[in-house]
């Protein structure tokens, strides 16, 4: 009764095929079927935000998405954020502002913030806090993450 499904995901620009049961979470498909372990799995019920990836450019919880549901869609994981020139502006800002300590939550933050800055290139403190409210970080106390988002906005503005 639980047939496997042949799916194709465009992950970080490359078409990837996988054979998955209906119940395979996108987070597990990325990590176990495709070997992309940059996407971290924390709570597996949508609270912590570690597993956030971009689905057609929009941040979503990969632990609350079935892989079969997104057959044929474009996924960007943390592995796909850096360009040919190295780290992305958001990644550089996080490093520069010390916006991570243990790093477990960081892939989710980077994906969320990348999308946030596309929608709001110069966000206010309040918009940043609302934007990252679905991502938990137990180390930083968030202050440096908010700073990093402002810094990333500057870097993006300089480069455009």
């Amino acid at each position: 009764m639980t047939a496997e499904h042949e799916i194709t995901l465009v992950v970080n620009g490359a078409a990837r095929r996988a054979r998955v049961p209906g119940r395979r979470l996108l987070s597990d498909c990325l990590r176990h079927d495709l070997g992309l372990t940059g996407t971290h799995v924390g709570c597996e019920h949508g609270v912590c935000g570690c597993c956030t990836v971009l689905l057609d450019g929009e941040p979503v919880r990969s632990c609350l998405t079935l892989a079969v549901t997104v057959d044929g869609r474009e996924i960007t994981t943390v592995e796909g954020l850096a360009g040919p020139g190295g780290l992305s502006p958001v990644q550089r800002a996080f490093a520069e502002c010390h916006a991570l300590q243990c790093g477990f939550c960081t892939p989710g933050f980077l994906c969320t913030v990348t999308a946030l800055l596309r929608e709001r290139p110069a966000p206010t403190d309040e918009e940043i806090r609302e934007g990252i409210s679905g991502n938990l970080c137990r180390c930083t106390g968030y202050q440096n993450i908010v700073k990093a988002v402002h810094r990333a906005a500057e870097l993006l503005a300089e480069e455009s």
Binding site: T2, A3, H5, P21, G22, R23, D28, E44, L66, V68
Partner: peptide
């Protein structure tokens, strides 16, 4: 923390 098996219909 994984879903139980089910038949997926799309």
């Amino acid at each position: 923390m994984k879903p139980p098996p089910f038949s997926h219909h799309a």
